[in-house]
Amino acid sequence: MENCTIYVPRLITKKENFAPGHRACIGCGEALAVRLAFKAIGQNVIVVNATGCVEIFTSQLPYTSWRVPWIHTLFENTAAVASGIESARKAMIRKGIIQDTKTKIVAIAGDGGTIDIGLQALSGAMERGHDFLYICFDNEAYMNTGIQRSSATPFGASTTTSPAGKESIGQFAWKKDMPAIAVAHNIPYVATANPSYPFDLMAKVKKGLEAKGPAYIQILSACPTGWGCPGELSVKIGRLAAKTGVFPLYEVENGKYSITVDFPKLLPITEYTSLQKRFRHLQPEMLEQIQQKVVRKYEELKEKTEMSGCCGQTGTEE
């Protein structure tokens, strides 16, 4: 941390819209990400939550961790429920049934609820252009059900349904590029974020809220339980995900890409993978293959940024 930025955390609101007493695992990066996102979102919001870790650890009858209106119905339909709420309010405001309080609609889900089972409902809602922010808290597997692989699980990671073994390197497919799918819907705002960069995260959430129409933000959320790392390292590991280029931090405003926290020289991915049991089985040659692809993907992202005519800021939150 550089001295000039060290006191910046104190400028962030102390208001917690997400009460303590939630039942997330010790050191949960997702709980941290949710907490920070909702500092940016504030209270004038209606939250739609998919089934998943966040839903489970914030809601258990007769309690709730939420200090904002919150609804959970099912797993795969979050964007559709948000569509219904947004449309209902639009109609009722127009008809004078309720006042226009400029309330935001925010849908939240995990990677499974977004990128696997919820993809259709999300695609539909983005295509129809509902005015809402969708945040995917991406912990890269079905953690709530016991660490099964999803299409967001990174290549080579061992999970309970992509276990590493004599005949298996673990997850056999490259992480699905959901932000690109969101971009392909021609929506006004798409971004990636990571709670290890809280100001970047909060700025993006605010931009997503203000966008007119659908916005999609994917927030990498370290999962000590599923990734096999000590809870105290959640924030460090998130930082390394960005610094190694494994999970780059960028945004796409009206189709224009920009890297928001850029690293001219990426750290080797082993700095990131070596801290996590899910990658422990990977042999050097396999890690080298992953390394090359990570660099290539990062270069592709930089090209998109250059083509968009935006220059990224270098290491803004270092």
Binding site: A19, P20, G21, H22, R23, T58, S59, Q60, L61, P62, Y63, T64, S65, W66, R67, V68
Partner: peptide, 13 residues
């Protein structure tokens, strides 16, 4: 429905 917002703060973790 839970009508008391943030009442999970009663829960000791």
């Amino acid at each position: 429905i839970v009508t008391e917002p943030g009442n999970a703060s009663q829960y000791k973790t």
